[in-house]
Write a protein that binds this DNA or RNA. Structure first.
Length: 698
DNA sequence: TTAGGGTTAG
């Protein structure tokens, strides 16, 4: 197995040029390799000039290599000054410079130099091509890559660089060209197979990877660690646990468990196939874990939406003194977004700033998403403005975030800006755009976007897009039209579509279509308690209490249990959880008293409890008590007594907000002069001065 | 020469 060669420099330093009296046979290894800094090199350089040895290209090139590559953490300035002083640089001098530019992440300069070499009629040698092709790979410079390919063919040094060519084409997104090169390659070389496999991985052709691996085994080509890593990546993406497990066994029986890279790939494979616990066990068995191994475990939990575990492992990682990098933080932030864990996410943002980490597209986008999902749109926009590069993901997160936070019009303004900047929207962008229309009540604009999506961008609407249209029509009270829209859908409507329609029936008290929606829902997802409750609420709101009870009984007969409402509030970094009529929480007495006082105060400001939201089996005063003890009222009451006046109260809850709580919270925001942000299962409600950002439709 | 971990929606 090939490993990267590391240059270990002896610690002996060169004190003065006078100590160098005679150059040995190989000055590069004995003297130049001892140079640790540019200052050391300067001394050797001066000596070379003094003794006129600098006219000997062999010495000068060795000096050049030290200046360009061997001295750690240095710029190319010194090397360039040496290079410019060479009268007629030969191919190896060019090679050193091209290699150094590619290594030092200036592939553009590498290609310019290659061009110069060509202009000066210096013939490339077999060592010129690999590093030049690497530069093309980095830049995804297909045209230049193809030119170099042609030159390679002409030069007759072809077969040696086939693997680098495969890599270059795959990196430039031309997997079919990579295949052609591979077809003309000797199939006995594991490197060629590995290059092709990693090419497929880069192009996300997961199935092809497995096919090629099969072929490899059929042909009896031996495989190595690198092969298995590519195959494991594909197993994870395809959820091919059988092959994944086979490789795991192979690794165990062949004593390959010492390889951090390989075991990390197995951990990742298990997590991506949905076996996070298995991934965790293997992760625990590793005797050395680097930042990638930790990140694989963290992202495994993050993708499985096991957010508590993400934060636990992240804490363990810090205890183990392994520094997180961008990838780690992206997974952590994405789980803070899911949890609405504002404090932890803010801490990560602070860490990013403290470590002066670059605000890349991915990191910036996930930070924006985190702030948006915590209801802090201004912070999300601040991050957006600071990002030097933005892609369609960043714009989509912004549009979606604004839409979910009740700023539909602003979301559409950003969509217009995005188009001005010629960023092509994708299918998810349109989910954001359509939900913005829905929140802003813009029916005609919504219809227009729905058409534009396929007409102007060739995006076929998916169920989610149809769902958005149903929401737009339903919210505007066009229930019959929404119903017809579903009937005419070219794809089968799913439960979410019918549920969206049902929610609009609840808001507009449409019994008939509500009943029809439930009929369909019962067939698609018979065990979903929320649907029965919505229909029961519709009956109750039009005074048909008996029918309301009947639906609830039907639900009970089927053995369906109500999902208990649960609200969370984070106070001083601690999370408090409330359930309706919760009497077990340690704060219950204090909280109930606070809730009582709160209700009294808002009643005198005009709040009327809405009995339609109470438990149907409750009577009279009990009905009132039942709604008064909904989990979000308890959480808000705790927030009111535990935070300073004027502080924003942030609640997240697992269900939709009920209309009584919605009404009560509006009045609370006015009476107590507090901004209250409630994140429910679908959207945000920003309550301020007696009104809500959702405009009373949710 | 080839290799492991990441972002939007549902």
């Amino acid at each position: 197995m090939a490993t990267t060669t590391l240059h270990h420099f002896p610690s002996k330093t060169i004190t003065s040029p006078t100590t160098i009296t005679q150059f040995p046979e190989n000055p590069k290894t004995l003297i130049l390799q001892q140079c640790k800094t540019t200052k050391d090199l300067n001394q050797v350089h001066a000596h070379l000039i003094k003794t006129r040895l600098h006219l000997n290209p062999r010495f000068t090139e060795n000096l050049l290599e030290s200046a360009a590559i061997l001295i750690p953490n240095t710029t190319m300035d010194y090397a360039l000054s040496i290079f410019r002083n060479i009268n007629e640089p030969d191919p190896s001098a060019y090679n050193v410079m091209i290699r150094a530019f590619t290594l030092k992440k200036s592939p553009q300069e590498a290609l310019i130099l290659y061009q110069k070499m060509h202009e000066n009629s210096v013939q490339p040698d077999p060592f010129t091509f690999p590093c030049t092709l690497k530069a093309c790979s980095r830049l995804r410079a297909l045209r230049e890559g193809e030119q170099i390919h042609a030159q390679i063919v002409k030069s007759g040094f072809g077969s040696k660089v086939n693997n680098t060519l495969i890599h270059m084409y795959a990196n430039c997104g031309k997997i079919e060209f990579a295949c052609k090169v591979f077809d003309g390659t000797s199939k006995s070389d594991v490197f060629a197979w590995n290059s092709m496999l990693s090419g497929y991985v880069r192009s996300e052709c997961w199935g092809e990877v497995l096919k090629l691996f099969d072929e490899m085994r059929d042909m009896g080509v031996g495989f190595d660690e690198v092969t298995l890593i590519s195959v494991l990546t594909s197993c994870g993406r395809l959820a091919n646990i059988e092959l994944g497990e086979w490789i795991h066994e192979y690794v165990e029986t062949n004593g390959l468990k010492g390889s951090v890279n390989l075991v990390t790939s197995i951990v990742d494979m298990y997590a991506k196939c949905g076996y996070v616990d298995k991934a965790r066990r293997l992760f625990e068995e590793m005797d050395r874990r680097d930042v990638v191994a930790w990140s694989a475990m963290i992202s495994g939990y993050s993708q499985a939406r096991k957010c508590k575990e993400v934060l636990d492992v992240f804490r363990d990682m810090q205890m183990a003194k392994v520094e997180p990098n961008e990838v780690t933080l992206v997974s952590v932030l994405s789980c803070c977004a899911v949890l609405g864990a504002l404090e932890t996410g803010k801490w990560v943002h602070f860490y990013v700033k403290k470590k002066r980490m670059e605000l890349t597209v991915t990191l910036g986008t996930v930070l924006m998403d985190f702030y948006a999902k915590c209801g802090l749109m201004e912070s999300a926009i601040e991050v957006f403005n600071k990002m030097p590069f933005k892609n369609v993901f960043s714009w989509t997160v912004l549009i979606q975030g604004l839409a979910n936070n009740g700023q539909g019009k602003r979301a559409l303004e950003f969509y217009a800006l995005m188009r001005e900047k010629s960023i092509e929207p994708n299918d998810v962008t349109f989910i954001g755009v359509l939900s913005a229309c829905s929140h802003a009540g813009l029916v005609d604009e919504g219809r227009e976007f729905f058409v534009s999506m396929s007409r102007d961008f060739g995006i076929d609407p998916r169920t989610e897009h149809y769902g958005c249209m149903v929401d737009i029509l339903g919210r505007a009270g066009l229930i019959e039209e929404a119903y017809q829209f579903i009937k005419n859908m070219p794809i089968q409507p799913n439960a979410v579509i019918w549920r969206t329609l049902l929610a609009s029936c609840r808001a507009h008290e449409n019994v008939e279509i509500g009943e029809e929606s439930l009929k369909n829902l019962v067939q698609l997802e018979p065990m979903h308690s929320g649907d029965y409750i919505l229909v029961s609420n519709i009956y109750a709101s039009v005074g048909r209490l008996e029918d309301a009870m009947k639906v609830m009984n039907q639900m009970r007969e089927k053995g369906i249990k109500k999902t208990p409402g649960c609200s969370l509030i984070e106070l001083d970094g601690e999370i408090y959880e409330f359930f309706a009529e919760d009497s077990v929480s340690p704060h219950s007495k204090e909280v109930y008293n606070a809730a009582e006082k709160m209700i009294k105060k808002i009643k005198s400001a005009g709040y009327m409890p809405n009995a339609a939201d109470a438990r149907l089996d409750a009577e009279g005063d009990d009905k009132e008590a039942s709604v008064a003890h909904h989990s979000e009222k308890l959480a808000i009451a705790l927030g009111l007594i535990k935070t300073r006046p004027g502080t924003t109260i942030r609640i997240s809850k697992n269900l939709r907000v009920c209309s009584d709580c919605h009404n009560a919270t509006k009045i609370i925001s006015k009476v107590f002069s507090r901004e209250i942000v409630v994140r429910d299962r679908n959207r945000f409600h920003h309550f301020k001065d007696g009104s809500c950002s959702c405009n009373d439709y949710w």
